[in-house]
Design a protein around this nucleic acid. Structure first.
Lengths: 230, 230
DNA sequence: CGCCTGTCGATTGTCGACAATCGACCACTG
DNA sequence: CAGTGGTCGATTGTCGACAATCGACAGGCG
């Protein structure tokens, strides 16, 4: 979005650790590892064709992000989310996004609204194509954009943790039976409130939106986890 | 506080990485490393008497916590906080604590109030002894207790990041010229609002409290950093 | 038969050595 | 003298091997 100086294709000077980190995180967030499943270092390192050193560093970061849990000398497992975790996740998410939306309105509400509207259209487009995976991705983009627009780097870094966990939830739970287009339309009141510069209403709308989503997921969570953890 | 089963002195079964992590974090948070100062792995590993492997893992975690910044092949430095960082830190902190206080009131306001009052007395006691360092520590304890009482594990884990950064600020800035006892008394309205079960007032008080602290620190920040980064 | 104890295999934790990368410095060239 | 190219030292990144620790299982003792 902002103009950057070097238009040259960036070369990958990233360390192996970082590449491993991204691969591992995506694997977890795409559900390639089931919750509770142990991550055996030797095994994964061999499969990735790297040594255990960069792998371990990646695991430490994932642990700090809360995606996996490590017990000394006992191993690392993918974090299994309980219903309480879901409730905590969405309650806190509501607070963070409400905070973000207040800042957004106090700064440049009009431009933010138009940018968010673009993202909403992207969700709608994905919904019309019936692409559930893409809908989820664009949905994440919408909310992440809201955070970015709030221009608060610390908030953004916390969001990276919260957002990753949201994505983990989504990976484990396909909202198969919901009307995809409705997912897109649900964002409209939020955008309108921002456009109107109505802080109170925007906060209320986003809180409502997050609470609804959380309640919906929380409802399905038990039956889902029951089926998978017998 | 809660009764634990094994009264036997716990043996340190913690891995070297974790010990190194704690030592390093304390060193940074106590100001033993100045902001911007490079952390040379070979040097620190030698000084701690450990290999670079556990040290690097510790550094990765500190990096994820935002206390240090790592650039591939170029090194790790202690994060230097700008005035913007301070403002972001305290604005977000206000949100998190406001969220916590609402939950606390909705749960067991009376017990929370009494527990917080104990912490306030601890601050007061430290203030009367003129122990600035202890005042800071007890102050941290007060706010951390508020978070813990909110019974929200995700919030607590985010707080560990935010709280660490607050501590980092405190380490770099001695509030020498402030009335220590006043620091303690500033917490009284918060406790009273909790005791009264008045959610709105409690939220307002905590927001005020954090905003005041943030403004005070933000004010001093420029002159402090000017003196130290010529 | 029940419980304690010692051993075993698997996995993680740690180490020292080697390779890759970067910035600084300096000689060289036009 | 400005700019370029190469070399060097320092630091980080990665690797393979070894040590420490844990849970499970089997054997002995009451």
């Amino acid at each position: 979005m902002t103009d950057r100086v070097p238009p040259l294709g960036e070369i990958q000077s990233r360390s192996l650790s970082e590449q491993v980190l991204d691969v591992l995180r995506d694997a977890i967030l795409d559900g390639d590892f089931r919750p509770g499943q142990p991550l055996v270092e030797t095994d994964i390192a061999a499969r990735l064709g790297v040594s255990r050193a960069p792998l371990r560093e990646a695991i430490r970061i994932l642990s700090a992000e809360g995606l996996v849990e490590s017990v000394p000398y006992h191993g690392t497992t993918v974090r299994a989310l309980t219903k309480t975790d879901i409730e905590e996740l969405y309650s806190l998410r509501g607070e963070l996004e409400a905070f973000a939306i207040r800042r957004v309105i106090q700064q440049d509400a009009q431009q933010a609204a138009s940018e968010l509207r673009e993202h909403m259209n992207a969700i709608l487009q994905a919904a019309e194509a019936g692409d559930l995976h893409l809908v989820n991705e664009e949905d994440r983009d919408f909310h992440r954009t809201l955070i970015v627009l709030s221009d608060h780097s610390l908030l953004l870094s916390l969001w990276n943790v919260v957002g990753a966990r949201v994505r983990l939830v989504m990976a484990l739970l396909n909202r198969r039976n919901s009307d995809l287009k409705q997912v897109a339309y649900n964002h409209v009141p939020i955008i309108e409130a921002i456009e109107a510069g109505d802080e109170a209403r925007a906060v209320q709308e986003i809180r409502q939106h997050i609470a609804n989503t959380g309640a919906l997921i929380s409802e399905f969570w038990e039956v889902e986890t029951e089926n998978k953890n017998p």
